[in-house]
């Protein structure tokens, strides 16, 4: 599996996510500077990593979404290629309008950094084949703007299309307001586009990919993607 990790000025989870896909599924990783015009030939998966691209100036992800490489990322996604945006990467995907929605500051007004329980809503996406719907996983979260927002009509339509893939939940898998760390509408932690090939995710699977990190739940995501690519699901 060939992975392109896009690096923006201010990305800081790029090396972590590259390490995670290398050690868990033996992916070959190329780091791609945001000012590049094209993704490497033969890319199977594009990752937009977490961090603080452009210092979170203006709006989180706003300027990264308009950087040179994003044209090719959009082309790649529209031809069915897999794109995964983690944390700031999810914010970039919404700002690039590759996913609907926007992010507001956490309702606590504080930066939150801790492990978090999530309920897997779908096990039929390329990113979640190895999970079971209803399963509870534990990924760390680390963000200040994680309140997912979309107006009610669009949110309802998005739910009807089953685009939500992960929700903040209790360790027993109940989706409650108490289990919602940031006030995200409908406890949304991760969602896909209508085609199912672009996933945005606020929590960090790369920080839960090896036993030494306290959880290996994230490794299943890399295994899912690898299996899907091997199965010829790619574009």
């Amino acid at each position: 599996m060939k992975v392109a990790v896009v690096v923006f000025p201010g990305s800081n989870c790029d090396a972590d996510v590259a390490h995670a896909v290398e050690v868990t599924v033996g992916a070959s990783v190329e780091m791609v500077w945001h000012a590049s015009e094209f993704l490497p030939a033969g890319t199977d998966l594009v990752i937009l990593p977490g961090g603080f691209s452009y210092g979170d100036y203006l709006r989180c992800g706003a300027m990264a979404a308009r950087s040179s490489i994003m044209k090719d990322v959009k082309r790649f996604a529209s031809s069915g290629g897999l794109v995964l945006g983690i944390c700031n990467g999810f914010q970039i995907l919404t700002e690039a309008k590759m996913l609907r929605g926007a992010f507001l500051p956490n309702r606590t007004l504080s930066f939150i950094c801790r492990p978090c329980a999530l309920r897997v809503e779908r096990d039929d996406t390329p990113f979640t084949l190895r999970y079971k719907a209803g399963q509870v996983v534990r990924f760390p979260i680390a963000h200040h703007e994680g309140l997912y927002y979309l107006d009610k009509d669009e949110l309802d339509a998005m739910e009807k299309r089953r685009q939500v893939v992960f929700r903040y939940a209790t360790p027993a898998g109940e989706v409650t307001d108490e289990a919602n760390p940031n006030g995200a509408l409908n406890n949304i932690a991760g969602m896909v586009n209508e085609g199912g090939n672009v996933l945005g995710l606020i929590p960090h699977p790369e920080r839960a990919s090896e036993p030494v990190l306290g959880s290996v739940d994230g490794a299943l995501m890399w295994q899912s993607i690898s299996e899907w690519i091997k199965g010829g699901g790619a574009h």
């Binding site: 203006l58 709006r59 706003a62 929605g101 926007a102 927002y149």
Partner: peptide, 9 residues
Amino acid sequence: SDLLVNDLI
């Protein structure tokens, strides 16, 4: 419309 304002919010 190109950058400065996100009309969703």
